[in-house]
Amino acid sequence: MNSVSRKEEFIDGVKKGIPIGVGYLAVSFTFGIWAVEGGMPIWMVVFISFSNLTSAGQFAGTRLILDAASFFEIGLSVFVINIRYMLMSLALTQKLKEGTRLGQKLIFGFGVTDEVFAVASTRERKVSAPYMYGLISTPIIGWTLGTFLGAVTGNLLPERLADAMGIALYAMFIAIIIPPAKKSRAILGAIIISIIITCILKYVPVFSFITDGFAMIIATVIASAVMAVVAPVKEEEVQE
């Protein structure tokens, strides 16, 4: 690839990444408020977003940190949440331009979020390393900057409003899972099984020794395994 087409690929990536970055700006804003409210210093909250660049994983991990969970529990919980990225990265290998180097993969691999994957994997052409660099750049900036703005301005908000912000991330998760659950009974099934198991582990006294982090892991593994047996997905669905 000559330098001109490299530049074109990069610019095309940046263009496709801008909507993702803008969306992240808003979503990470609430994460910033929430984490600072939990008692974490601003620079550390910003460092979480910059180094993790993920929503569910860093939300769960941060909650466990604030709950004084063990390193093992934090690491395992976040890893289980992020297992889905392995499938995305795996699918992405089929989409890469031939000759993409190991070092390049190690760099843009950092930015493979759900949304980045969705855009890259549905591109008509193969994706090159410069395209991926462009694609991940705005989301990284949006996610980090939004967190910083939320962390800084969160302290200025009235207490009741800041308190009400606590529901924002949960509301977003609801907004992510409900539309697909409307279209797929199997997804709805996974959601319901997962919630039932989480509640059993939380409210039945026999299981009170199980922490929230492990309860989430157990609920996820059982719900996903049950649905994988009951309703195995077709090839096309996995690619979504």
């Binding site: 949440i81 199997a186 959601i191 997962s194 919630i195 989480t198 989430m216 996820t220 719900a223 996903s224």
Partner: peptide, 11 residues
């Protein structure tokens, strides 16, 4: 792996 994100977010 397809069901994992939904189960995680629900839990």
């Amino acid at each position: 792996l397809f069901y994992v994100p939904y189960a995680v977010l629900a839990s």
